[in-house]
Simulated assay, not measured.
Amino acid sequence: MVTLEDCTRHSPYSDPGRHAALLGALPDDLASVCAASRNVIAHYRAELPDLPASRHFEVDSRWLEAILEVDQRRHGAGLDQPRAVGDRVAGCCRDHALFVVGALRQRAVPARSQVGFAHCLTPGFAHDHVVEFWARGRWRRANPELSPAPGAPFAASFAVPSAPFDVLDLPTGAGAPFETAAQAWRGWRDGEVDQLARLLVLADGGDGATGRRRWTWWGGTAGMRGCTRGSGCSRGPRSGVLPGWWIWWVGPGRSREVVS
């Protein structure tokens, strides 16, 4: 059984290694830590569409220590010192969540990543990672990529500029902006016929309204199944074990790697 104490200990992925002092130098409040993640990391598709081939390796950094190493070779400054978007480490939602999990565990705050589907991002894209952290007697969720208020530091250029909910304490339950993979799978299993359409990641030009869907990146029952299995890996004390944005799922008689 995983305990709260387990979730205060670093995994090999969340361990900042020789860059621990950089995380320790950040302000302790969650908003500042999330802002620092947006300052250090930019989404490789949404914010860095012209990323040169020489920098593609950044997306595969996977370990927090490796992400911070790339950042420090380029900047050599505190993690809250402003970086231009084009100079941030290329990553994705998984890396933002890992950054915040690492910073919270560095402060002995129980934290873990959670994979699922966000219903407040660009239409046609739902797959997302958030942070779960223990505070005031319960697990709470935060989405580091979303800005908590207009004008918040280092707002991601693709995110909702001012979300109609607290991005540092996400609502849960029916109609919540984030749905865990397990919740999505149960919904589909229980006959929610619109579930697949809501959880698709469409290729460029795909149209979720016409039914002509190209599941090039992520979608369908395979996507939910992969996310559900990934959720089991990401929520434990060794969260971050899934390598980069690769999710493994097993279909009938075969296995496959899918890019989310």
Rank of each mutant, 00 (worst) to 15 (best):
V85L: 13
G91V: 07
A42Y: 07
V258E: 15
A35H: 06
D60W: 14
E257M: 13
T172P: 08
P82W: 08
G244T: 04
D50Y: 08
H129E: 10
R138S: 11
D166S: 06
D50N: 09
S239P: 09
G191W: 05
A149W: 09
F57Y: 14
D6F: 05
A142V: 04
V115W: 04
H75Y: 06
P164N: 11
S14D: 00
R238D: 12
H75A: 02
L48Q: 01
S234G: 09
A152E: 08
R94H: 13
L146N: 04
D207I: 00
A77F: 00
P243I: 09
R229Q: 15
E47C: 08
E145N: 10
G175H: 10
T216Y: 15
R18F: 05
A135W: 13
D29E: 03
T221R: 10
F117Q: 10
D87F: 05
I41L: 11
L104I: 07
L23S: 02
F158N: 01
L121P: 00
V167L: 01
I41W: 09
D28N: 10
Q72K: 14
S234H: 08
G220T: 03
L64W: 02
A66N: 12
G205R: 07
R136C: 01
L242Y: 03
R45T: 14
P243A: 11
W246Y: 12
P153W: 12
V2R: 09
V250D: 15
Q114G: 12
R189G: 00
I247R: 14
A21L: 11
E5K: 08
D128P: 10
